[in-house]
Amino acid sequence: MVLSVAEKSYLYDSLASKPSIRPDGRLPHQFRPIEIFTNFLPSSDGSSRIIASDGSECIVSIKSKVVDHSIENDLVQVDINVAGERDDSIIVETLSSLMNKVLKSNKGIDTSKLQLTKKYSFKIFIDVLIISSYSYPASLISFSIFSALKATKLPKLVSSFDDLEVEELPMFHDYDLVTLDVNPPLVFVLAIVGDNIFIDPASNETEVANNGLIVTWSNGKVISPIKTLALNDRYINGFNPLLLKNGIKLVEQYGQNIADALENL
């Protein structure tokens, strides 16, 4: 959506005023409605599809492989594809670097949950396809990864856990599956307009934002990566250091609600 200069100015003023007024009447911490479907891909271990109210859509598929964890250190790997963008475009590379950092082994996802035996572990491959996106898709991706991982079922191990002495490969049950019990972090995108801060900016809001924040939340607290994000190249400006703290507090306050909502699908 391309806004005229007058429209942008009007929008900026309403967002920067106190109390702020968002164009769709949301509260600063309020998300737009999203729709989520899980486990609709029969050939993957877990999957989810998320549709935001503005028509942004993202599909995530989880696949797994048994690896020797003494050789393979990275047990989570994220691949991101954005429809209409080259694999080496800035948006794709930036998002995949960010998501890989978010889900980095031992920090984002507890790798002990992936361990099968003393020697072998599951390695999780997360493939993300963004079909369409109208605002910065980091939040959308992390929500769909979260719900896909929560819905992931992996084969049940039937062989013994201690396989250091005996040279044997892990054996799995023919039918039984175990739900993967992990707590992946969530990523929040915040927009700063004047001295106000908003969660989940819509595309028109990003166009007038002075700056943006990416905040990662996991298990009740804010973790790294946290960084600023330029949402446009026209309105971008410096901001009061206190807003950084306010943004983090906002996420800390409402993160659990979002996680609960996503979990109780």
Binding site: N237, G238, N240, L243
Partner: peptide, 17 residues
Amino acid sequence: EEIVGFWKDNGDAVFND
């Protein structure tokens, strides 16, 4: 007086006052 960029890759954010 103003921040133009913030970057944190490692560690928890212990942002009490």
